[in-house]
Design a protein around this nucleic acid. Structure first.
Lengths: 186, 186
DNA sequence: GAGTATATGGTACGACTGTTTCAACAACGA
DNA sequence: TCGTTGTTGAAACAGTCGTACCATATACTC
């Protein structure tokens, strides 16, 4: 009895809020502008999520979920040379459409350095890639449990992403990845 | 005529403020807590720096200045193998004493992605290293104007720093650097 | 219709923000 | 001592923040 609950509203709001955060970043996030952009009110945001902190947590989870989905059908390209596979990953992750995700990724990392008490699953965001990457580059790994090779690969990718987002120098970073691919293949 | 100015006060405050920012981060920086910790008042901070934005700019410049000084007598170690030089850089930059600088570095980068209008000299913070690094690793560069090799080296270092600061896994990141050093030397 | 649970708007609270204003104090030259 | 210039404290301003409170509207069962 009573009016039926509408769980779809929360999901709809979460999706929109995630769009907003991906577009505007986490740092200056404020309930009132967010609610205004979403066509709702701060009152409803708290009604659905309890507090700003929980809202942010839900948004980050949603963003990671989206990234994982987009990644799923992409990475397992074992075909081709090591260079091709590496170039494929780099082309995918450094594409302009990924920029909001990359930005949010760096933002969360930076904030996690100052406030480690939040972001309890931060380490996983790093080590998550190892299984998939280890499979993708099994032929240059020392063994099935090799975590060092995936660590190096991801370090190069993240480091070049860092460089690219800061300098915008696409040519130099692209070439740098090719150079690393050469090193790795031999 | 009149009371003589005391420029030393501003410098003293700047040094303390830089300490404070290195310890507490940039994100939540606020004038009143900062002033309280420094034994001064928000009034005086604005009197000396004009505005919070200018204060932050001055602090960032001071922080970079300190980092450059610490770096100056360190990098030009051309002796030894490529691995040794690389390990030296990694050991130096990933040392615990450098953690505040690294943290601030990541924080500025992340904020610069959302607000590029500030941080006009962000690109330089990346490309600054090329000359010194090019000299340090001249034997693995393709030429005197090779920017690709320094880009790769710094990408690995930054990427591993990212990993280390997020996961705290010193062993894996150390080994990853060694693995990269092997790749680079051949 | 009454009863009831969810959904929503409006408003205000207390705490914070960077900055300004006004007044007073301190140290100098004349 | 007076005027001048640099320094400093206290308070207030205008704004934003997350959040809580209260009333009301909506949609359902009985």
């Amino acid at each position: 009895m009573g009016r039926p609950a509408d769980p779809a509203r929360r999901e709809r709001t979460l999706a929109q809020a995630t769009d907003y955060v991906l577009a505007h970043g986490l740092a200056g996030l404020s309930l009132r502008p967010l609610a205004a952009a979403l066509g709702t009110s701060p009152r409803m945001l708290l009604y659905d999520f309890g507090s700003k902190q929980e809202l942010v947590a839900a948004v980050l989870a949603e963003a990671r979920r989206r990234g994982a989905v987009r990644l799923a059908g992409r990475l397992p390209a074992r075909t081709g040379s090591v260079q091709d596979r590496l170039r494929g990953i780099w082309a995918w992750i450094s594409a302009d459409e990924r920029a909001p995700f990359v930005r949010l990724f760096f933002e969360v990392h930076a904030d996690g350095l100052v406030h480690p008490e939040n972001y309890p699953g931060q380490g996983e965001a790093i080590t998550d890639w190892f299984d998939t990457l280890g499979a993708t580059f099994h032929d240059v790994c020392t063994g099935p449990d090799d975590t060092v090779t995936p660590t190096v690969v991801m370090a190069v990718v993240r480091g070049l992403l860092f460089d690219l987002t800061a300098t915008g120098d696409r040519r130099r970073t692209d070439r740098a990845l090719d150079r690393f691919a050469e090193l790795l293949d031999r």
